[in-house]
Simulated scan of single mutants.
Amino acid sequence: MPTELLVLILIVALALAFDFINGFHDTANAVATSIATRALAPLQAVLLAAAFNVLGALSGTAVAKTVGKGIIPPELATHTLVIAALLSAIVWNLITWRYGIPSSSSHALIFSIVGAGIAESGIHAIKWGDGVAKALQGLVFSPFFGFLGAMLLLTLLLWLVANRRPSWVNRFFLRAQVVSAAYMAFSHGSNDAQKTMGIITLALATYYGWSGEQFQVPLWVILSAALAMGIGTAAGGWRIIKTIGFQAVALRPIDGFAAEVAGATVIETASRLGIPLSTTHTISSAILGAGATQRLSSVRWTIAGRIVTAWIVTIPACIALSWLIYTLLHLLTGSR
């Protein structure tokens, strides 16, 4: 078997491994609030998230195209670049999972591509005004809209149920959270799984010599990325579920519903616009927004501070890590 084909197979395997890790790393995005409010048992919540993650992953490819051809031109990419970016993102995901830190798998991958791209072709090869700009827009605006959306939605819901007994409100929103958790899981799949589709297709473009105009995501890539994320989600990411669902803020069923609906709506809108945002950032901010609606003191701001710190550190850490991995691979193999 030709060496180039073996390398391509290795890249696909690494990308699907990243997708699997992304699934269990980000399981908390879809299920933490439902578990915390006891709307769903942990196993029910994780299986529901896995199923709807797969469905969401099959719903489009706009984000995949942004990742695959919007950060570095496909004609400039090499297999060494793709491998370095994937290894960097995987290592960062495992580190943050180990310590229960809800960092962004999306920004880990995107800025790992940036770091490897700089190592390979220099800073001017990066398409700062295209895919990187979209990623930064997602970084800035998704937490803001998640926080604000959850606050506004919860305020409206509390007004609508003001004359209902608390026991009725709790029962109703415990059932409603099954729907909102499914919506959140669907939106997670529609955005996060597409990043893996994008990087696999970037590797295919490198192998076949495609230009940006020829960049299309094959059906088998869509299906394999969807399934890998679904299986990873089913494995569960219990450390981060604990951080988001139980430590950041005390949640009632109505709070969890508002956070999930607001967060999922922000993510779905971004997916249709091809913006690769962080689902972790969005739902974490929505949960904090729902908590702040009750009273500011109900939010455990030390946990929120850990989350924000992880957001800030991810970008430079992944750029540096992928640059280092690319440099080492280049030295070891003597090839680009």
Results as ranks from 00 to 15, higher is better:
residue 328 L to M: 12
residue 110 I to E: 03
residue 168 W to Q: 02
residue 267 I to Y: 06
residue 45 A to N: 13
residue 254 I to G: 05
residue 4 E to Q: 10
residue 25 H to Q: 07
residue 154 L to D: 02
residue 252 R to C: 08
residue 31 V to K: 04
residue 85 A to P: 05
residue 16 L to M: 14
residue 263 G to A: 11
residue 102 P to K: 13
residue 54 V to R: 00
residue 189 G to N: 15
residue 265 T to R: 09
residue 54 V to P: 03
residue 315 I to W: 10
residue 201 T to W: 02
residue 199 I to L: 04
residue 136 L to T: 00
residue 27 T to P: 04
residue 281 H to M: 04
residue 73 P to M: 13
residue 137 Q to V: 10
residue 138 G to D: 02
residue 164 R to T: 07
residue 81 L to Q: 11
residue 41 A to H: 12
residue 85 A to N: 03
residue 239 R to V: 07
residue 331 L to Q: 12
residue 206 T to P: 05
residue 179 V to G: 10
residue 163 N to H: 07
residue 110 I to V: 15
residue 219 L to I: 03
residue 5 L to Q: 08
residue 13 A to G: 14
residue 317 A to F: 15
residue 275 I to S: 01
residue 69 K to T: 03
residue 138 G to M: 01
residue 282 T to S: 07
residue 228 A to V: 13
residue 330 H to S: 11
residue 117 G to M: 05
residue 189 G to W: 15
residue 18 F to S: 02
residue 334 G to E: 08
residue 176 A to I: 13
residue 214 Q to Y: 03
residue 58 L to G: 14
residue 168 W to D: 09
residue 309 T to C: 13
residue 27 T to V: 08
residue 295 R to D: 08
residue 299 V to D: 00
residue 76 L to S: 12
residue 112 S to Q: 02
residue 88 S to Y: 14
residue 196 T to W: 00
residue 228 A to K: 10
residue 170 N to T: 08
residue 183 Y to D: 08
residue 193 A to F: 07
residue 1 M to E: 09
residue 135 A to G: 04
residue 151 M to R: 06
residue 130 D to P: 00
residue 268 E to S: 10
residue 283 I to A: 12
residue 112 S to N: 09
residue 251 L to R: 01
residue 30 A to L: 06
residue 274 G to A: 05
residue 221 V to W: 03
residue 293 T to C: 00
residue 130 D to R: 08
residue 110 I to T: 07
residue 31 V to R: 01
residue 304 A to G: 13
residue 299 V to G: 00
residue 88 S to F: 13
residue 5 L to E: 06
residue 295 R to N: 10
residue 234 A to R: 10
residue 133 A to N: 03
residue 100 G to R: 05
residue 98 R to S: 14
residue 165 R to C: 06
residue 24 F to M: 14
residue 135 A to I: 01
residue 24 F to N: 11
residue 316 P to W: 15
residue 8 L to Q: 01
residue 84 A to Y: 12
residue 48 L to V: 14
residue 241 I to C: 11
residue 215 F to R: 05
residue 171 R to S: 10
residue 292 A to M: 10
residue 128 W to K: 00
residue 235 A to F: 15
residue 239 R to D: 08
residue 126 I to G: 04
residue 238 W to L: 11
residue 197 M to W: 00
residue 169 V to H: 01
residue 87 L to Y: 05
residue 228 A to R: 08
residue 201 T to H: 00
residue 157 L to T: 04
residue 154 L to K: 01
residue 51 A to D: 05
residue 275 I to G: 00
residue 186 F to T: 10
residue 195 K to I: 02
residue 325 I to R: 07
residue 255 D to H: 09
residue 334 G to Q: 07
residue 60 G to H: 11
residue 14 L to E: 06
residue 74 P to L: 09
residue 121 S to W: 09
residue 256 G to L: 05
residue 92 W to H: 14
residue 232 G to D: 09
residue 29 N to Q: 12
residue 236 G to C: 15
residue 26 D to P: 01
